[in-house]
Structure formats: C-alpha cells, structure tokens
Nucleic acid binder design. Structure first.
Lengths: 167, 167
DNA sequence: CAAGTATGATTTCCATGGAAACCATTGTCA
DNA sequence: TGACAATGGTTTCCATGGAAATCATACTTG
C-alpha cells in the first residue's frame, strides 16, 4: 500500500498532471468511421467487377430517378464539389453511360441523362449494392437493422444531410 | 387519361423491362457513409485549429496508450497500410510529437514513442474530439446514443474491426 | 557460410476529392 | 448598351491513402 502511493505520486510529478483522455471507442464518430470505411471498402471491391466506383454508382443511381439533372444538382445530391462531380461525369461519359447536352435556354448549364447502356447497367449495380448491404449487415437481426436505419436517419435529418428532392 | 396510358405504354416498351432498382437510402451502408463523412468532416475542420488531421489524432491517441509501438503495429491498429502510416509518422515527427528509434535487437523495426510535447498535445486534441462528438450526436438522447454504440460495436466485432490490443 | 527468403519500413505511382482559380455565359443596372 | 456581378462548369493544385516496387536487415537452410 505504501509503495503504491509512492508510484502514484511519482507518476503525477513526472507526467505533468496527466489530463483525462477519453478512449477512442467512446466516440461514436470514431466507431462510425471505422464501420463505414469497412462497408464502403467492401462495396468498392465488389463494384470492381463492373469497373465502377462507389461515387459513380451513387451518381448513376441519382440520375436514374431524375430523368434530367445538371452537374450542380448532382453535386448537391452527392454532397460533393462541382469539381469532383465534373471528373466523375467524365468517367461515366467515357463509358457511354451518360449523355451531356447543353441546355438550349442557357448555354452555361448541362442536361445530363442516362444512355440506354446506362439505364441497363444501373440494375446490375443495384444488385451488387443489395448483396453487399445484405451480407455486411447480416450479423444484425431485422429489428437491429431497422433501429440502425432510424438512428442514422435521425442524424441525417438533424444535420441536413438531405438528398435533394427531384424538384 | 388516354394520353397518360399512351405515355406509360411507350415508356414500358422503350425502357426495356425496367428492373427493380432499390433506393439508395434503403442501404444502411449508404446512410452510414453519409453520416460518417459528415461527422469526420466536422471533426477534421475542428482539428485544423491545432494543424492536425484525423489520422494523426488517432495515431497519437494510440501511441498515448501504448508506451511503445512499431509502425506496423500502428498500421494494424489504424487499419491502414504501412505506407500510409509511414507518411503520417513523418508529419507528426516533423512537429516533434513523436520520436522514432531503432530497436536495438532488430535494426529493421522502429520503436515509436510520444515526446513530452506529444504527451501534452493529446489531451488538447481529446478535448476537441469530445466536443465534436458531443455536438454531433446531441440530437440523439442518451438511450439512442448507447443503442447506436452497441450496434456499431456489434458490426465491428463480427467484421473483425478490432483495435489491436496493447499485447 | 552463402544464397535465398522473410520481414519491416519507405518510396513511387496512382486514384480520389476538396479548394480555389479560371472560363464561358447570362443577368443587372447605371 | 456596356461594364460588372452572378452563375455553371472545368481545370489546376494539393492532401490523402492504397498497391506495389524497393531497400535494408534478419533468418533459414543447403
């Protein structure tokens, strides 16, 4: 007991008032990031089969709903910069999955739309996405998955992480 | 009404048997990624005040627990490649927050440790991390936060996303 | 012991995505 | 109308991080 006190006292003096440092795992943001990186990494690997990236998938999926969209709208929907979207568009255009057309009334804006090939690839990618999600979250039961979805939805709502409506 | 039918029929014929495509938001992985990006983005911005990145924070925090660690061990703990860790080490070493020493028994491996300045900065960064997490998850009540933590923990466990123990 | 292999760290190359500068076009207003 | 702001998109530059090649050191085995 006496020696214990000595150790503690000496630690206190040498390690300049050890401030309380919370564990990494106590931060939900940290846990979220680890799990998110894992699932997105999985998904990215699965999409390789179609030579596609996660960002391309999300963009194509957005364009699948909206018949027409501009790069700026997609940037908002993806929470990405216009510059980043511009580059993704280059790639999917190179694969002939989208078409860029200039808006007649305003030559600054582009009207994007899926090509026939693009409309064909989206369901295939969706299948990969479904399978990936199913597998990754299989270790949660149905209630837990629903609960997780609800919590993420609540966070998304209160932080304005919103998909831009089709308008 | 008649024209409506015509449109629908024509769509069905031209869009070659529209396969069922699930919504993005039905994928938990997608929601997870959006929320995770938001919270990590916030955190990264907050860390700018100390000229530090999220990766550097996590590395320093890991080194704070382990008195000694090798780059390889940290790479495992951070789920990053050795190459990436090597670069982060360059940065925190440039700030004199860590020290690299060659292991005497094996000249291939390095023994990393925090410097006094490094030990001093970690609690400051921890405070930023605490505040960021508190703010971001403030819209969840205590039960919800606990629930989210439990679900993420379960996913981490069943996908082997494990912090390497101090050994 | 020498040659070959294994291990740890670094370097190089590449892809991604943000920030800001840039360009073209449109709108405003003096 | 002509200058100037605003808007939409692209380009350039930078930081990050993975993959693979590289380098140095240690281990193994013939």
């Amino acid at each position: 007991m006496v020696s214990m006190e000595i150790i503690l006292v000496s630690m206190e003096t040498t390690s300049e008032t050890t401030a309380p440092v919370s564990d990494l795992e106590t931060h939900l943001g940290y846990c979220l990031r680890r799990v998110s990186n894992a699932v997105s990494g999985n998904f990215a690997r699965a999409l390789q089969a179609k030579r596609t990236s996660v960002a391309e998938w999300v963009l194509l999926r957005q364009l699948y709903d909206r018949r027409q969209a501009t790069p700026g709208e997609l940037a908002d929907a993806l929470t990405m910069t216009r510059g980043a979207v511009s580059k993704i568009l280059d790639k999917v255009e190179a694969k002939s999955w989208i078409r860029r057309r200039v808006k007649p009334e305003d030559n600054r804006v582009q009207l994007l739309s899926l090509t026939a090939a693009g409309r064909r690839i989206v369901p295939e990618l969706a299948k990969i996405a479904d399978r990936n999600d199913d597998q990754f979250f299989a270790c949660l039961d149905s209630d837990e998955r629903q609960s997780l979805g609800r919590l993420l939805g609540k966070l998304a709502t209160c932080h304005q992480i919103r998909d831009v409506p089709i308008e």
